[in-house]
């Protein structure tokens, strides 16, 4: 953990992290219930050890990788990122993790692969929320390969220098800071390299409201609410709204990924 404070610290410059309580008691993890407090109340039932991640599809070294084996190969660093939920609230989270690019390189991405598909664990015996079909389980997400390889894209294994609490997606989750939070899929058990745009849970549930890209964009509203501003959590009952930043404030780093794309169409 010595290297935890290295790397892209510039991405977190000037950001004041929310409290441990904010980050760990206010979660969207529908496998444990749809209330914001449900995951912290219910996720203790999740067994995260042993844990393995299947990496398959268009890779040179497909297989089932033990989580500890992955960790031993990776360099953990701290990244303080803005976190913007599609529901128009936001936090600042100090993550610990490694770049997704490093994991993908470990498995060796084959030529022709264009996307990465992700899958969350689906284990009804430990996930009380899955008895309702709130979504089509297991939870699935996807990134374009260039998004996945971007140096800001993180595989988080911890917060505040501690291992990820279950409700935050233990033991391994994605963090894509310029996209709405639901893209940052939790408790990952599978990554599949593919040449087709993979299915994404919220997009499947309601394609008119949730697109594949889901980039934070104050100019493209969610059909049911405006995305122009957000409520930063942690400020109590009288917290002021603040304007939402294009790509959640990471425009300089990621805007080039979407050059020439109509972001109102590819939302």
């Amino acid at each position: 953990l010595a290297a935890m404070t290295g790397g892209a610290a510039q991405a977190g410059e000037g950001l004041e992290p929310n409290s441990w309580e904010d980050v760990t008691t206010y979660c969207n993890y529908y496998e444990f219930g749809t209330g914001k407090g449900d995951p912290s109340a219910n996720a203790h039932s999740l067994t995260t050890s042993p844990w393995s991640v299947t990496i398959d599809g268009m890779v040179d070294r497909p297989g089932e990788y033990d989580f500890n084996e992955i960790l031993s190969e990776m360099t953990i660093e701290e990244r303080i990122y803005r976190f913007r939920c599609v529901e128009a609230w936001s936090m600042v989270v100090p993550w610990n993790g490694f770049e997704l690019a490093d994991l993908l390189n470990m498995a060796g991405v084959k030529d022709g692969a264009k996307y990465v598909a992700f899958e969350t664990l689906y284990r009804p015996s430990e996930m009380p929320g899955t008895q309702y079909r709130v979504l089509d389980w297991p939870y699935r997400e996807g990134l374009r390969l260039d998004e996945a390889m971007h140096p800001l894209t993180l595989m988080a294994t911890g917060i505040f220098g501690k291992p990820l609490p279950n409700q935050n997606g233990a033991p391994l989750r994605l963090v894509v800071p310029w996209k709405y939070g639901f893209k940052s899929i939790k408790s990952i058990v599978r990554l599949t390299l593919t040449d087709k745009e993979p299915p994404a849970s919220w997009n499947m549930a309601n394609p008119g409201e949730y697109g594949f890209y889901s980039n934070v964009n104050p100019n493209v509203d969610h059909p049911r609410w405006s995305q122009a501003s957000e409520r930063p959590l942690g400020g109590g009952l009288f917290a002021r709204r603040k304007p939402t930043l294009m790509f959640n404030g990471y425009e300089e780093e990621v805007a080039a990924l979407y050059d020439g794309m109509d972001l109102t169409r590819f939302y």
């Binding site: 309580e21 904010d22 008691t25 206010y26 914001k36 407090g37 609230w89 409520r231 959590l233 942690g234 109590g236 009952l237 917290a239």
Partner: peptide, 18 residues
Amino acid sequence: LFYQGLTGGLGVDPIKAL
């Protein structure tokens, strides 16, 4: 409930909770 919201009893997002 308003008092709870003021004093943290409604959790991290007291506005939505209230």
